[in-house]
Design a protein around this nucleic acid. Structure first.
Lengths: 146, 146
DNA sequence: TATTGTTATACTCTATAACTATA
DNA sequence: TATAGTTATAGAGTATAACAATA
């Protein structure tokens, strides 16, 4: 028998509610991915690369929670589309740095805008509740980092 | 230039914080998936099938946001492992119903328990904040359904 | 004619192991 | 010896198109 909702801690139930909310938005998220003609890992990679920063391939692999060997192919495809470039690192010649091209930066920005403008299930709350929720989540995020 | 955090609505910032929280837990989630020797779609499929209920293949495809043809393979593998069974539907002989086996029900329950017991970034909040957060999310979920 | 599930096909993601060039 | 990235390989997910059985 599953734990009844009333037996779960508020944090556990809240976490489950967060998961449910995310699940309801998954279809929309996949639509955005296809709108940009990317795959989910490719879109995650673009979001992971900060404009103006140089990211080692291995760091991207860690961010994507996959093996280094996978990143080779993912970056190959982004590079072929002119969104990313590989550059030699100066301090260690084994390392290759990833840098967004100008178009990569532009596409990344359009993606961020698109995701932010999407259907937000929290917008259904009244303004006071929205602010209260935001503040609690900020607090949780801050506690998370420590 | 990106929208400054202060120019975003509280709901937008809250939604972004939710996404960030989920992202920090992705590695742990993938660990659980591998612990059960499943793939993410296979685990989502098990979670979608309610014990004692018969689910048409097409309904599962809609739930997973993929084409019907993909479900054939995903279900093949779950069936080969003895977690799911295909059954003929009575009212429409084109339809095949999916039913969890006894072992499928047991594995599904273990998965739910494991996911619920996992690291919960919201547990860092004090109890009063946890309850407040839970209540706000309940409200958002309720508003979502209408 | 339209729909459900399957098959065939091509592409992408994924992990593992072996390789290279560095360190 | 160890590490960063690549290549080779095999298995899995994904969409599209074509198909059989059924509606």
């Amino acid at each position: 028998m599953a734990t009844p909702a009333t037996r779960r801690s508020p944090a556990t139930e809240a976490w489950k509610l967060v998961g449910d909310l995310m699940a309801t938005q998954r279809g929309w998220f996949l639509d955005v991915v296809r709108e940009f003609e990317l795959s989910p890992p490719q879109l995650f990679a673009l979001r992971a690369l900060e404009p103006g920063e140089a990211t080692p391939m291995g760091d991207l692999a860690a961010h994507l929670h996959c093996d280094n060997s996978n990143v080779t192919g993912i970056v190959d495809r982004l590079e072929r589309r002119g969104l990313v470039e590989r550059r030699a690192a100066t301090h260690d010649r084994r390392v290759k740095h990833l840098v967004l091209t100008d178009e990569g930066v532009a596409v990344r920005r359009r993606i961020e805008t698109r995701l932010e403008a999407g259907p937000n299930p929290l917008a259904a709350l009244d303004p006071a509740d929205q602010r209260a929720l935001r503040d609690l989540l900020r607090k949780a995020a801050a506690a998370q980092e420590s």
